[in-house]
């Protein structure tokens, strides 16, 4: 068979875009998992709510007649604020009371929250697909690459890189970040040295939700539509990415996201697009069988 390099590069670019988004969402999963040891099933819904808030805010601001750049800034800020707010509230309602409960309880509660938020948005907004405004302009300097990737691809990559850098800075160098790492390592010990663990957990949820909101805005603008169900599939896939990279590990989440995005893009490009979701899940099952600790994770030893 003839190898079509142009097609290959296109698939590569679209895989990179998908992977960046998965990475952004996966970070939320992995951070929460690292600190409270819980799969936050509602995380995908936060991503969806972020996209919806951006949609509503941008529509409102367009009606008010603001210029494009101001609209994007304010709507993004609103989206991050509300997504963070939902993340914070979900943690307070559904997870905090269950912190010392048996393992199954917070999981079931998380699934309940996910179902609840999905239907909440469906009832509050609409069950139809909504057209999402195209907020990313066409850049002139990208003209030569127009056949390979679009401006929105480019913006997604750049934003992802910037967000990752900010996140790394927060975690490595700020007080909150240090407290987060301490809490992840040993919650009781962190409490003993005077860290307000509840605050740190809240902060983790808020940061994770903000990342998800950014991901939600970017991908919705890329695909051009939103729907109350988008969070569910994206959520599972991002979780897959987090597991792939090694859950609890932040570079792992990014790597996992990129690997998953690439794998999906090539699989759909060379095999069949109808089974896109099947590839991701099969990859998840394979990873869990052969390397449950993930690519960058450390294997947990069972202590008796």
């Amino acid at each position: 068979m003839h190898f079509d390099s142009q097609y290959f590069i296109e698939l590569f670019a679209s895989g990179l875009t998908k992977g960046s988004i998965y990475a952004l969402i996966a970070l939320g999963y992995t951070m929460v998992y690292g600190i409270v040891g819980l799969i936050n099933f509602a995380h995908g819904e936060i991503y969806m709510i972020g996209a919806f808030v951006f949609f509503l805010a941008s529509s409102l601001l367009t009606v008010l007649g603001l210029p494009m750049w101001a609209m994007i800034c304010i709507a993004t800020a609103a989206s991050i604020f509300w997504a963070g707010g939902y993340g914070y509230t979900v943690e307070k309602i559904a997870y905090k009371p269950l912190r010392n409960a048996p393992r199954l309880s917070p999981l079931i509660s998380a699934i309940g929250m996910s179902v609840f938020l999905q239907n909440y948005v469906m009832l509050g907004q609409t069950e139809k697909y909504l057209g999402f405004p195209e907020v990313i302009p066409e850049f002139d300097f990208l003209e030569p690459f127009a056949s390979t990737f679009s401006s929105s691809d480019f913006v997604i990559w750049v934003t992802t890189v910037i967000v990752m850098l900010i996140l790394t800075w927060i975690i490595k160098f700020t007080r909150t970040g240090k407290a987060m790492r301490a809490t992840a390592q040993d919650r009781t010990m962190a409490e003993l040295v005077g860290i307000n663990v509840n605050q740190i957990i809240s902060a983790t949820f808020i940061i994770g939700s903000a990342l998800a909101a950014v991901g939600g805005i970017l991908i919705s603008s890329h695909t051009g539509s939103i729907h109350y169900y988008i969070g569910f599939i994206a959520g599972i896939k991002a979780f897959t990415a987090a597991v792939l990279g090694g859950i609890g590990s932040i570079p792992g989440a990014v790597l996992g996201g990129l690997v998953l995005g690439m794998a999906e893009s090539f699989a759909t490009g060379y095999f069949s697009s109808a089974y896109e979701d099947v590839f991701a899940f099969s990859l998840l099952v394979l990873i869990l069988i052969f390397r449950p600790a993930g690519l960058l994770g450390r294997a947990e030893t069972e202590k008796v």
């Binding site: 819980l38 799969i39 999981l107 897959t240 899940f281 099969s282």
Partner: peptide, 24 residues
């Protein structure tokens, strides 16, 4: 393959499996 996984992994893999069957 999956029963040696811990509870939360099991949950997500079974969830994925459910979706796979539906997609197929």
């Amino acid at each position: 393959p999956i029963l040696r996984l811990r509870g939360d992994y099991l949950a997500i893999v079974t969830l994925g499996f459910g979706e796979i069957i539906r997609v197929i």
